[in-house]
Amino acid sequence: MTHKQDLPSFEWSWSDAPIMLPLAFESREWNTVHIALFLAEYSGSQVNILHVNSRIDNTEKRDEFLKKLKSIAAELKIKYSVNYAKAKSAEPGVSEIADTIVSQSEKMGCQAIVMSANRESFFREFFGRISDKVARKSKRTVLLVETPHPNITIPKEPSKILIPVLRDEYDPSPYIVAAALSSTATTARSELVVARVVYLPPTIPLDAVDVSKSLRRLEQNFSYRVASSIKNLGRLFTPKILPVRDVGKDVNNYAQEIEADAIILCNHKPSSFRKLLPREEYDIVGNATRIVLVVFPKE
């Protein structure tokens, strides 16, 4: 059984250092804007917006975007700055834009980068999106906001958030993000569900979780870890053991069943020879019909 001394000490909050928000001033980035502002409100941080200039920029679209952003930031009482970085190339490529974002985040002393990671063509996703390269290269915390469809938006007060836990390792990062997103919601309406995902082969019935001693022991240990999150963050997290056959489909089916507004995943940054996301996390993102936040903790 897990004991208190088995759990290492963690930082249970973000600092008040700036949060970087890279923007192309596109309509599909609004979920990312809202999430970055929620995090800034929670941690008392300033948001440093960064746009990497190119010669095809549309200034009219940019001005309209910034006007709307100003109104949202004023409502939340968030300080922000708008910064521009000029790329070396007239039409910079994916790697150059990613390198610029990472270097600027270091110069500005940002604690985290929050950016959109929208669905792209197979070719682009295979070779890596800008967001993927930023997550891989940055030593800061990186939060990618995956929006499966442009019409899907995150509510101002999310009523339910699902945190699937796929492995036995423990990291407070998704719990901190969930606490931030629910900080403006009323306690009665906001439910944070933490589901320990357990793969069961076809030969074992799904209801075996109720009778298996090893699974009951896993549930006890998992509940203890979730209790630590409740104690340190002052938010109620509901633990759940979720047996699955197909991780991607079954996790998303459960999110649909409980009507979760968002899913939060945590993944440590891979080496340069590995894919950004393991297969299970990639399947969850690929099958999602709601916003998925992927947190890459700082190194």
Rank of each mutant, 00 (worst) to 15 (best):
R167T: 12
T153G: 03
I291Y: 01
E11Q: 03
V197I: 00
V193G: 12
I78V: 09
H268D: 11
T141L: 12
K160Q: 15
I204S: 01
L143F: 11
V94I: 15
E91C: 04
L69N: 06
V226Q: 01
P297F: 11
S105H: 10
R225M: 04
A208E: 14
Y224W: 03
S138R: 08
L242Y: 00
Q46A: 10
L276R: 05
K139M: 10
S182W: 01
S71V: 04
K139N: 15
H268C: 12
S183M: 00
S173P: 10
I35G: 00
P150T: 10
D207A: 00
D261M: 01
G109A: 11
S131I: 13
K275V: 06
D261V: 02
S272N: 03
Y175I: 10
F127I: 11
A36I: 02
A208G: 07
A98S: 12
Q256W: 00
W12A: 11
D132S: 13
A112Y: 03
R119A: 12
A40Y: 03
E29K: 06
T2S: 12
E106M: 08
F296Q: 12
V209H: 05
S212G: 04
E259D: 06
D63L: 14
S212M: 00
S54D: 15
L50K: 07
P239I: 09
N53S: 14
P155L: 08
F10S: 12
L23W: 13
Y254C: 02
K88Y: 07
K79S: 01
V211D: 03
I230F: 07
D132I: 04
